[in-house]
Amino acid sequence: MIKILIVDDMVILRECLKLVIGQNTELEVVGCAGDGREAIDLCLKLKPDVILMDLNMPVFSGHDAIMEIKKLEPSTKILVLSVEDDEKNIATAFKNGADGYVSKDIVPEELFAVIKKAFAGERYIQEFAFYIKREWIASTICIGTEQKFSVELTERQKEVLDLVVQGMTNEEIGDTIGMSAGRARNIVAELISKFMVKNRTQLAVMAATTQMSPERK
């Protein structure tokens, strides 16, 4: 059972989320908080696995709460659930330690899936937030002035990533570097997970625009 803490200053939204999440037998809402300070207190007391965090709240904002919780309970996963879809909020949330960012209009089935992904250690950006400006992506999950991703890749992963950017299929990748199509598919899946995108198209776009691919070093 995945333990969840809901943090939002709107009572009706907290209660609705609690009812929706209660439909899933693998998830359990262990508490609700109305601001960031209360979220920190309940996190220390209830030890949730995943926190659903709003950003704009009185007393103590979601951004501040994310940063503080990650200092005190670094293993706790935090998913931002917000109506704010601007670049600065998205980038700041991830810089402060958020593990995912989704819109409040997310459908229940997708929310359940994202919670489970976060619990499993995967980072997630919902589709609406993917095409944010390159400089904000760089400031969030890249290092240095050259805008290269800080995620470490093996030489084989770098080779495969370069070929994905070129538009090759798994079969073509396998033929090019001498591996089976199945092995190529597995490496592409690893890259998709590492770079927090949903499919190989997004992987190729992000690689091409943020100097992730080896040929852009």
Rank of each mutant, 00 (worst) to 15 (best):
29 V>H: 05
81 L>W: 04
184 A>N: 08
96 N>I: 00
74 P>M: 05
21 I>V: 07
94 F>V: 02
171 E>D: 14
51 I>Q: 04
213 S>P: 06
80 V>S: 04
156 R>F: 07
44 L>G: 14
192 I>E: 02
2 I>Y: 12
29 V>W: 07
40 I>A: 10
84 E>H: 14
110 E>H: 09
66 I>N: 00
47 K>P: 07
215 E>L: 09
117 K>F: 03
217 K>I: 12
175 D>E: 11
176 T>M: 03
174 G>I: 02
147 Q>I: 02
205 V>S: 11
143 I>H: 09
68 E>F: 08
7 V>S: 08
136 W>T: 03
69 I>M: 09
165 V>P: 01
126 Q>E: 09
113 A>H: 13
159 E>K: 12
21 I>P: 15
111 L>P: 15
164 V>Q: 00
115 I>N: 07
145 T>Q: 15
71 K>E: 13
117 K>R: 10
81 L>K: 01
160 V>P: 05
76 T>Q: 00
91 A>F: 02
97 G>R: 02
103 S>Q: 03
182 G>P: 04
150 S>K: 11
210 T>H: 10
112 F>T: 00
147 Q>N: 15
22 G>S: 08
163 L>W: 01
86 D>E: 06
85 D>E: 12
126 Q>M: 11
87 E>A: 09
128 F>Y: 14
17 L>C: 05
201 T>P: 05
20 V>C: 00
13 L>R: 11
71 K>H: 01
112 F>E: 06
177 I>V: 03
126 Q>V: 12
42 L>W: 08
75 S>Y: 01
158 K>F: 03
209 T>P: 01
24 N>Q: 07
134 R>S: 06
205 V>I: 15
48 P>N: 02
37 R>G: 12
113 A>C: 04
4 I>A: 12
43 C>Q: 06
152 E>N: 13
12 I>H: 15
209 T>N: 10
198 K>V: 00
137 I>M: 12
